[in-house]
């Protein structure tokens, strides 16, 4: 996983609650050959046609300067629904490196951490305030998310702290290979299974291939 520390750039407000992973990437876009997931981001909202040839001009990510957005500011329960990690890949593929919302679904949040997409929870009133400032545009559209300092700086230059689990923060900052780390516990896994095989033999004797 790539290391993440500080993300700065244009932020796009999408102040809708419960933006689900079917909206972030519809299933048909997960199975198209020769389509990168970034092209598929918000396909049903972004394109007028199923092939994705014609943009909807009113959709925010089709407008300048949001075509180059690095940060998304959204409503509560962002990423609810399906477990598809493609939702995270679609955001990253488009160029979004951080999503700021009052809350995230558990699976989406986990998937974000595994891919270096910085999902930041701020209180609902703070997100609403940032969203309103971005909508107005008077204060500018640039924001910064700093994982070292655990702060978000809004378009009005107001800086707010955010909380993140220290283990997740370290993993993101260092770009850790979790599987590699778990494999260092291979002996513990083998020991667990050896004990477990004695106490719950039916788990290991299902005979799926028999």
């Amino acid at each position: 996983m790539e290391k993440v520390s500080r993300i700065a750039g244009v932020a796009a407000p999408m102040m809708v609650d419960n933006i689900d992973t079917d909206a972030i990437i519809p299933v048909p876009w997960m199975t198209k050959a020769d389509v990168d997931f970034g092209q598929a981001l918000f396909a049903n909202w972004r394109y007028q046609d199923e092939a994705g040839a014609v943009d909807r001009p009113d959709f925010i990510l089709n407008r300048e300067p949001f075509r180059g957005a690095r940060i998304l500011v959204a409503g509560t329960n962002f990423g609810c629904g399906s477990s598809r990690e493609h939702a995270v890949w679609a955001l990253l593929g488009f160029g979004i490196r951080s999503v700021i919302a009052p809350s995230f679904s558990d699976i989406f949040y986990e998937n974000s951490c595994k891919n270096g997409l910085l999902a930041v929870s701020l209180p609902a009133d703070a997100v609403a305030d940032i969203g309103a400032k971005l909508d107005g545009g008077d204060a500018g559209l640039e924001m910064t998310v700093d994982l070292e300092a655990c702060t978000v700086t809004g378009p009005d230059a107001r800086t707010r702290p955010f909380d993140i689990d220290p283990a997740r923060r370290t993993a993101l900052l260092e770009g850790l290979d979790e599987i590699g780390m778990t494999l260092k516990d291979a002996e513990a896994i083998a020991a667990f299974q050896a004990r477990d095989r004695d106490s719950r033999p039916w788990i290991y004797q299902a005979g799926f291939n028999a």
Binding site: R84, E85, E110, K114, N115, E178, I179, T182, L183
Partner: peptide, 11 residues
């Protein structure tokens, strides 16, 4: 998700 799936396959 897919990353966790890969983790289960490997570990």
């Amino acid at each position: 998700g897919t990353s966790e799936l890969e983790h289960v396959l490997a570990t």
